[in-house]
Write a protein that binds this DNA or RNA. Sequence first.
DNA 1: CTTAGGATCGCCT
DNA 2: GGCGATCCTAAGC
Length: 188
Amino acid sequence: MRNVIAGIDFSAPAHEVAQLLIGTVLLVDGVGGRIVETEAYDREDPASHAFSGPTERNGAMFGPPGHAYVYRSYGIHWCLNFVCREDGHGAGVLIRALEPLAGLERMQQRRDTSDPRLLCSGPGKLCQALGVSHAHNGLALAAPPFSLSARVAPAPLVTGPRIGISKAIEVPWRFGLAGSRFVSRPFR
DNA sequence: CTTAGGATCGCCT
DNA sequence: GGCGATCCTAAGC
């Protein structure tokens, strides 16, 4: 049971973990908020970075579950994933949006905006707001600087196709907190 | 509100 | 050498 963090078993399939993460609170050095949007990248998934096997970049996805996988996107942004599964083939959950709750001032400085809806409404944005970078790749989510807190009650979910990919575009593995104003894009 | 284009560079074929 | 699990801005309707 050492893969359980915030009441979630990270050795479960990514598309299950992605749903359970909605409503939990993620902090990095005390800055963060409620997870309101995730995407699953399971094994055998052509859209996953881990699909073609381990490489130098995706190595963290083949490491222990419950750890961070951080990669650079478009040469500019950082994106944060939670590693899932224990069966030898990497999988993960992309954290796409947070509802800002803690460290608002720090996030506003890093993002250069005071609009709370623009602080963490996208995978690149939330990494900038929380100060996540390659330095966090491979770190355990159960220890500082990370903190993941269990949600109080089950979260009402909405689902849809994943964003920004060209393979397996029909798989409905994007999950959101129903009614949240802090998602990266509306759910249809 | 929706769409289009540019920035920018590490990773993989 | 091509192409992104993105973001921002500007322009069009």
